[in-house]
Design a protein around this nucleic acid. Sequence first.
RNA 1: GACCCCAUCGUCUAGCCUGGUCAGGACACAAGCUUUUCAAGCUUGCAGCGCGGGUUCAAAUCCCGCUGGGGUCACCA
Length: 443
Amino acid sequence: MIKVRFAPSPTGYLHIGGARTALFNWMYARAQKGIFVLRIEDTDQIRSKKEYEEEILKSMKWLGMDWDELYYQSQRFDIYREKAEQLVKEGKAYLDNGAILLKTPKREVKFTDLIRGDICFDTTNFVTRDADGNAITGEDGADVLKDEVLMKADGSPAYSFCCVVDDALMEISTVIRGEDHISNTPKQIIMYDALGFKPPKFAHLPLIMGEEGGRLSKRHGAVAVSDYRRQGFLPDALVNYLMLLGWSPGGDQEIISMKNALQKFSIKKINKTAAVFSLEKLGWVNAQYIKNKDINELTDSILNFMKEKEFETAGVTKEQLKEVVKLYKSRMHTFVEFFDRADFIFKDDFKFDDGVQEQYLKQYHVRESFDLLAQKLANLTTFDLKSSEEAFKDVVSKMNITTSDLVHPVRVALTGKTVGPGLFETMVVLGKEKTVARLKKHF
RNA sequence: GACCCCAUCGUCUAGCCUGGUCAGGACACAAGCUUUUCAAGCUUGCAGCGCGGGUUCAAAUCCCGCUGGGGUCACCA
C-alpha cells in the first residue's frame, strides 16, 4: 500500500514550491489508490502561527487536494521524547547541555532515489569538535555529518528527528519532497537505523526557480498560492501549470484534466532538472481554462471572486455579468485583468487611458456625429446588435465619414479605451441609457 | 570552501533507459490571414542537444573530464 505525506511548516503561507510538492504527493496517492497524509510540522512554537496553518489548509482545499489523515507534530512531543530517551538508553545517543544528540557513525550511506537513482554520501570524514567548535579530528570543513540534535535543550524535538519518527510510525512508504532535502537524507537514514526502522523510499523533486536563477522566492513576485487566488487564477489552471513543472504527460499534451493526468502520472517520469517558474505561461494556461470554461460556471466563479474581494458590483445582475463575461472570455488571463479591462461596465467614473481623449474626442466631426448617434440610439425601441449598428451606419453615411472614423471615438467615450470587444456588443451590454449618456458628455 | 544534485530552443518540455526518425510540441517573439480596435483562432517563421575526450559503422542518447547552474552545510523546518 502506497502512503505518502505532505508536511508543511505553518511558519508562512503555502507557496508555489510547497504546493507542487503537495500536488505530486497527492497525485501519486490518488493514482495508486494509496493514502495521503497531511502533517503540520509545528514544532517551532514561536514561528508557527495558527493563521498560517489555516491558510495552508485553505489553499490545499482550493487547489482540490484532500487528505486522508491529519496530524500535528505539536501534539506528538511525548512520542519524540520517548524515542530519543530510548536511544540514550541504548547508548546510541547522549545528553549534551540539556539536549540529546545522536552518535553519528562514520560510514557510507547509500540510498536509491526514485527520481535520481543511487546517491551516496561518505561520512568517513566525520569531524569531532570541541566546545569552541574547533575540529579535534578530521579536516576542518570536511565533515559531512556531525552528531545530530534529536531533542533541543528547551525540550522540543528537532525537525529531522520528528520527521523520521513520524514517517516511520505513520508507515509512510514513499517520501516525496524537494531536492533541498537530499542532504538531509543520509542523517535521517542513520536515524532510521538507530531506531530500528526500515527507511521509506525517497523521491526528491527538482526545485522551482525564479526567472533570474536561484530558488523561487518573494523577490521574484507572488509566491503564495493565496496570492494567485487573489489575482483571479483558476485553481485547475494553477494545478495544471504546476504539474507541468517537472513532469509531462508525454506527447504534445499540456492542457490536461486531473482525471487524465492521474492516469498518466508516474514518479519515474518526473524530471531531474530544476524548472523556472514562468508567470507568462501560467497566464496562458489560465486563459485557456477561462476560455474553455462553461459560461455559467465562469460567471459563478467571477461572482464568487467579486464577493471575496468585495468588489462594487454597481447593481450588475448575474445575467448582465454573464453577457460581459462572454465578451471578455477570450480577452483575459486572470479575473483581475477582467475587472481592469471591463471597469467601465461597473462604474461611470471609469478612467480614460492616457491621451486618448485628446486623440479621439477632439476630432472635427465628433460633436456633431455623437449628437446624431445619441439621438438615433435614444429613439430605438429595441436596442440590440442589429438596430444599434444600423443607427451607427446611418450616422456614418450622413456625416460622410468612415466607420472607422466613428468607431474609435465612440469606443473611447464609452469605455475610456481604444481596445476592447466589438463596439456594438459593448454598447448592447452597456445598455441604451448609459451609452447615450456617455456620448452626451462629449457634445 | 566541502559535500550532493543537475545540464535539449530565451522559458517549460518530448526524445535518453532499449544508440540509427530533417531533434517534436508549448509559452514568448516575428510575419500573414481575419477584422471597427484588441483578443481568440488559423498559417508560417525564428530559435536548442554547454565544451572536450572517448566507445561505436553510427552518440542528444553510453562512459570520463571540464565548465556552468542549483542545493545543503542551525538546538529553523
